[in-house]
């Protein structure tokens, strides 16, 4: 799925509202994936992975249904999701920022870039801004070590990014007006 596809499907995707029953198609997606794994508790990580691919993220309501379908305690499912960084319980932003903190980027000041991103956006790494515009994640290596520090926003690579340039870069992705 390309970034643009993700954007389109996101708009069409029914919203999961905390405290309300899951939208029918989300529930069906979960059931279909769980059934494909024969509701086997040992396949929990694969199941979560596929659901996240499809639904975009793994909120409480989704995890509760997975637990119920697998017949395992809810806390086991949340325990796994909260342990692995690749799972997210919050929806990703309209713009996804991946900042590299691999060795090469790190020694060239990636940490300061990350700090600037965090302060500009008002969120910590792994989180999404309240307006849903940006999500910020730390990744280990983007395979562009010679260009460090590297930040990817959606499909764009921002090379040798300096902290001072962060506000201008972000402005390009903000909806105008």
């Amino acid at each position: 799925m390309t970034g643009a596809d993700a954007l389109c499907s996101e708009a069409a995707r029914p919203k999961i509202v905390p405290g309300e029953p899951l939208p029918e198609d989300v529930a069906e997606t979960i059931d279909r994936i769980v059934d494909r794994y024969d509701a086997e508790p040992g396949s929990l990580i694969n199941i979560l992975h596929e659901i996240q691919e499809d639904v975009g993220y793994l909120p409480e309501e989704v995890l509760s249904r997975v637990a119920e379908r697998l017949g395992v305690p809810v806390v086991d499912v949340h325990g796994v999701v909260s342990f692995y960084a690749l799972f997210s319980m919050k929806p990703k932003g309209r713009n996804r920022i991946a900042t590299c903190n691999g060795t090469a980027c790190y020694v060239r000041g990636a940490q300061r870039v990350l700090e600037r991103l965090e302060s500009e956006l008002g969120v910590k790494a792994g989180d999404t801004t309240d307006d849903g515009e940006f999500s910020l994640d730390v990744v280990r290596c983007l395979g562009a070590c010679g260009l460090g520090p590297v930040v990817m926003i959606n499909d764009d690579v921002h090379a040798r990014l300096k902290p001072d340039r962060v506000p201008a870069v972000l402005a390009r992705y903000r909806r105008s007006g």
Binding site: E60, L63, P73, V74, V75, D76, V77, H78, G79, S82, F83
Partner: peptide, 20 residues
């Protein structure tokens, strides 16, 4: 056979408690 609580989070952030 209840398991109302478990480890949630990772490393220093780990809390033993109910889900969510």
């Amino acid at each position: 056979g209840v398991k109302a609580i478990g480890p949630v989070g990772r490393g220093f952030e780990t809390v033993i408690g109910p889900a969510f």
